[in-house]
């Protein structure tokens, strides 16, 4: 090697500097081209192979939907207890993945009386924070109108909870269910604040946000959500909206359904029949 062709120290440094610059540039470019967003966007992660609860389940072939016929609900609260057991929801009378509201109009009153099982009178009637009853508190009153309304996560098409999650631990599946990844949630509770329906809770023991999943572990195996399964009067309807003869498709087709808080822009996917203006 001649003296002229031998790179000088300065030239080597310049070369290394260029190499370093190119590497940095490539990293920045790659990030800009989508590698970084791909790493951060966790919205579709659970579909990947073995991580999915049911291996032969194809989430692109389903679009789950939920219906509530408030005309049928008798307020027995079996759904609430089934949900607590099935999903290991904290055993207290204040945090629920699903709950039932009671609306009562008394004769001579111009306002509605609303309560649910977290009401101290109802807790006292049950005698336990792990079993739920509606106290018979209106037995001596003249009731004009009364009805029950089951509530649960609306699995919105544009969920505010998913929008605000800072780490993408909560996401919407392709078959239309909003889930929380408890191994990734940081427990900031921004999602709890963002949900206009009060459907989210914070599991203090696990340190993560929790919510109704329409029993995703069951429906992906062809089963019904626990609350639907135990409802003795068929007030809760569940099914695949891609199947035109499914219970939910028939429910939506055969009834004039409405959703809660349509003005929120969240586009909820729980369809109601038999509720009135005070329900939100």
């Amino acid at each position: 090697m001649t003296k002229d062709s031998k790179p000088t120290l300065a030239a080597r440094r310049a070369f290394l500097a260029k190499l370093g610059g190119a590497a940095t540039g490539a990293a920045v470019g790659a990030a800009a081209l989508g590698i970084l967003p791909a790493a951060s966007a966790r919205t579709e992660a659970p579909s990947a192979g073995a991580s999915f609860p049911t291996k032969d389940y194809d989430w692109t072939k389903h679009q789950w939907g939920f219906g509530v016929d408030a005309n049928k609900c008798i307020g027995c609260l079996r759904c609430v207890e089934a949900c607590k057991k099935e999903n290991d929801v904290p055993g207290n009378a204040h945090q629920f993945r699903t709950w039932v509201e009671r609306y009562v109009y008394l004769e001579g009153e111009d306002h509605v009386r609303i309560d649910s099982h977290q009401d101290p009178v109802n807790i006292a009637a049950s005698g336990s924070e792990k079993e739920y009853r509606f106290a018979n508190r209106y037995k001596d009153a003249k009731v004009d109108k009364g009805f029950f309304v089951p509530k649960l996560c609306n699995q919105c098409t544009h969920p505010a909870c998913v929008q605000v999650c800072p780490v993408g631990a909560t996401y919407r599946t392709k078959d239309g269910v909003v889930l929380v990844d408890p191994t990734y949630c940081i427990g900031c509770r921004y999602c709890v604040q963002a949900c206009p329906y009060g459907a989210r809770l914070f599991n203090e023991e696990k340190g993560v946000a929790d919510k109704c999943t329409w029993c995703y572990h069951r429906i992906t195996k062809g089963l019904q959500p626990a609350c639907v399964e135990v409802c003795p009067v068929g007030a809760r309807v569940f099914g695949d909206q891609k199947d035109k003869e499914s219970p939910i498709s028939l429910f939506i087709r055969n009834n004039r359904v409405q959703v809660l808080r349509p003005e929120s822009g969240n586009a909820p996917n729980v369809f109601y029949v038999g509720i009135d203006k005070e329900v939100n």
Binding site: P166, G168, C185, I186, G187, C188, K206
Partner: peptide, 16 residues
């Protein structure tokens, strides 16, 4: 935070 040890997730894998 419920999981302060995961706090950096919001910087490492931010949900934009």
């Amino acid at each position: 935070l419920g999981h302060p040890e995961r706090a950096f997730n919001s910087t490492l894998t931010p949900h934009w």
